[in-house]
Simulated assay, not measured.
Amino acid sequence: MPESSKIFTYAVDGLAYTVTVYEENGAFFADITVDEGAMDVNAVYFGDDDFSGSSESLRGPLNMNGASLDGEKVQWDAATELSRPGLGPEGEDKETYLQTGDTMTVSLDIESLDEIDIFGIRATSTTNDAGSIKGVSGDPEEPEEPEDPEEPTYEKVFFGEVFSDSGDPLGGTFILDEAPDPNPYSIPALPEGTEPTFGNYLSHFLSEEIGGDLSAVESVVFYGSGEDGSQAELFRIEAPEGGFETPEDLLAAYDEAIEGTEDLAGQDLMAALSLDDYAAAAPETGEEIGLEMEDFDLI
């Protein structure tokens, strides 16, 4: 994956291309991709946005004489010949002849992407009416950083150590997203202001404050709001034989459980996972848990 990049585009009737200039492992390259039509890329030019000083140029048919950007004559800092005009005996198999969908990579002798604000291509055998171009592209697009998918959040997570034959929680540690007020049973909750993602629940369970024993966990149960607004079990992760050895093992099992779901927030998590078997209403307070408190290890 490129470490950073700039994208230049150019289009005339019958021809369009994209140039992606990027850094990778300390070296710099330009990927020239034809989006429409075809062209024989004979030379590339580039420069920064300071148009003062002398301009680099290649002689003869590879020159960019008269090239301008927004009505201003371009001053090029560098020019590189890639091929001579004409397809010759190779025809369309010529290495620099690009058709729709083709990409050619050119190495660039620069030390920083800041050196390239303007990119030019001198091409012949093109599919526009003129049959050649002196293409100039400026104002490079900065590629959008992909957004990290939103982490699902939960109203409560149970790190269960003992369950009934029917799967009901009997012993373990409940952790709430927010501490209730009052909290007569001292049910643990995430620290104030902590986002209720599973990673944060797990970190809190293993913290000195809770002192949870991961090896004793038989199943982790996740709770959120059901369709009627009441708290309900969303899904659970069963421990492998011998239990979870490390937090990374449990996180990997969690990632596998939610992999491929489209919307993992709130009520939509329940629909996305379609785990109706686990959608029984879950209590919200100590009294509503309906359990003898001595049967629980509420740390």
Score class of each variant (00 low, 15 high):
Ser164Asn: 09
Thr153Cys: 11
Glu178Ala: 14
Val136Ser: 04
Asp165Thr: 06
Phe174Ile: 12
Tyr154Asn: 03
Glu151Arg: 09
Phe174Asn: 09
Glu144Tyr: 07
Lys156Ala: 14
Glu144Ile: 01
Ser137Pro: 06
Val162His: 11
Asp148Arg: 14
Val157Ile: 10
Val157Tyr: 02
Ser164Phe: 06
Phe159Pro: 00
Pro146Arg: 06
Phe163Gln: 02
Glu142Phe: 15
Ser164Gly: 10
Glu161His: 01
Gly138Arg: 03
Lys134Ala: 03
Thr153Ile: 13
Asp148Pro: 07
Gly138Val: 07
Glu150Phe: 04
Gly167Ala: 06
Thr173Val: 15
Phe158Ser: 01
Ile133His: 05
Phe174Ala: 13
Pro169Cys: 01
Glu144Arg: 10
Phe174Cys: 04
Ile133Val: 15
Glu145Asp: 11
Thr153Leu: 11
Ile133Asp: 12
Ser132Thr: 15
Glu178Asp: 04
Ile175Leu: 10
Glu141Gln: 14
Pro146Cys: 09
Asp148Ile: 09
Asp168Arg: 13
Pro152Thr: 07
Asp148Glu: 08
Gly171Ala: 08
Lys156Asn: 14
Glu161Phe: 04
Lys156Cys: 14
Glu145Val: 03
Thr153Asn: 02
Ala179Ser: 13
Ser137Asp: 12
Glu150Asp: 08
Gly135Met: 08
Gly160Glu: 00
Thr153Met: 13
Ile175Asp: 01
Val136Tyr: 07
Ser137Trp: 03
Gly135Ser: 11
Glu151Val: 05
Pro140His: 12
Pro140Ser: 12
Ser137Ile: 01
Tyr154Asp: 02
Glu150Arg: 07
Gly167Leu: 02
Ala130Leu: 13
Gly171Val: 00
Gly160His: 00
Lys156Gln: 15
Ile175His: 01
Glu161Gly: 00
Pro143Gly: 11
Pro146Thr: 15
Gly171Asp: 14
Gly160Met: 01
Leu170Ile: 09
Pro140Glu: 08
Lys134Asn: 08
Ile175Gly: 02
Asp165Cys: 09
Asp165Leu: 14
Gly160Trp: 01
Leu176Ala: 02
Glu161Lys: 07
Val162Cys: 01
Glu151Met: 07
Gly171Tyr: 00
Pro146Tyr: 08
Phe159Ile: 12
Gly131Ser: 09
